[in-house]
């Protein structure tokens, strides 16, 4: 029996979809059977981030309303044959699906896949309630900004009220140079305030923009720092203990030398 993990944040634009795509791809790369579910009805994007936008025939609403069978709606990934996408409907709105239907769907997916990653829309309304309805655990994504952390706090409260206890936190787009200058909240600041367990820290990285442009998740790019962060997060989801990345900005001579020699 597989596991259903919802990726949520409250605030929009903090990197839920990018995180979902990278976690899903990372797990598939490790050989697990994975499905990504986009629940952002009306504003779907997981398809473009995955580079699968041209293959959509049926969507989430087609499945929940019985227009097609679940199998027909799943799009197989280009790179991994054990990775699938269930896209959101683009022409409907959040009320086209209800939490009960999501629970049924998640149960079906749980039987078929090792991991079901549910990409949650921004907000705390029906889209959020749909996304969390069938989940076993939750990952909350935030950035080191006051607005994103505040919304994460609210989301953590709502998750716990829905008995999705112990959500794990991913801090996205951290800028080590700004942290060093004292112009950005650091990891300990955010963890202290939110009182949750940290699942990973992803540095702000241009390679994310490039990989999104191409529709190829950064987790596949060995040279990408953000990709490395997501690879580590993937391992933590599987229950392994992995050290957090060293995010110190200037590499220095010795660091460069070590890297050239493949020592890190």
């Amino acid at each position: 029996m597989g596991e259903v993990i919802v990726v949520t944040s409250g605030k929009g634009g903090v990197g839920k979809t990018t995180t979902s795509a990278n976690i899903g791809t990372g797990l598939a790369k490790e050989g697990f059977k994975v499905v990504l579910v986009d629940t952002d009805i009306g504003l779907r994007n997981l398809d473009v981030v995955m580079g699968l936008e041209n293959r959509i025939v049926y969507d989430l609403v087609d499945v929940t309303s019985g227009n097609c069978r679940l199998k027909q709606s799943l799009i197989r990934d280009k790179r991994f044959e054990n990775l699938f996408l269930l896209p959101a409907a683009q022409t409907k709105d959040k009320s086209a699906v209800n939490p009960d239907q999501m629970r049924v769907l998640c149960q079906e997916l749980r039987e078929e896949f090792d991991y079901t990653i549910v990409d949650c829309p921004a907000g705390i309304e029906q889209g959020f309630r749909n996304a969390i309805a069938g989940a076993d655990r939750a990952i909350v994504v935030t950035t080191p900004e006051i607005s994103a952390v505040r919304d994460a706090d609210r989301i953590i409260g709502l998750l716990e009220a829905s008995e999705l206890n112990n959500p794990k936190l991913i801090i996205n787009r951290i800028r080590p140079d700004m942290v060093k200058r004292g112009d950005m909240m650091d990891i300990t600041d955010i963890i202290d305030i939110l009182a949750v367990e940290l699942m990973g820290v992803v540095p702000d990285d241009e390679s994310i923009v490039i990989s999104t442009n191409k529709g190829e998740p950064a987790v596949m790019d060995q040279a990408s720092k953000a990709g490395e962060a997501y690879r580590r997060i993937t391992q933590r989801i599987r229950g392994e203990e992995v050290p957090f990345m060293d995010l110190d900005a200037p590499e220095g001579f010795l660091g460069r030398f070590k890297r050239l020699l493949g020592m890190r």
């Binding site: 706090d153 942290v179 112009d183 600041d189």
Partner: peptide, 27 residues
């Protein structure tokens, strides 16, 4: 003050303090 390593004026601490206060009310 930054050169002297004082962080009290850094924007991070401003953010932390503001966040703490908003969260008290939110929670």
């Amino acid at each position: 003050s930054r050169i002297l390593g004082k962080e009290s004026t850094s924007s991070k601490n401003v953010a932390k303090e503001r966040l703490r206060l908003v969260l008290v009310h939110d929670r």
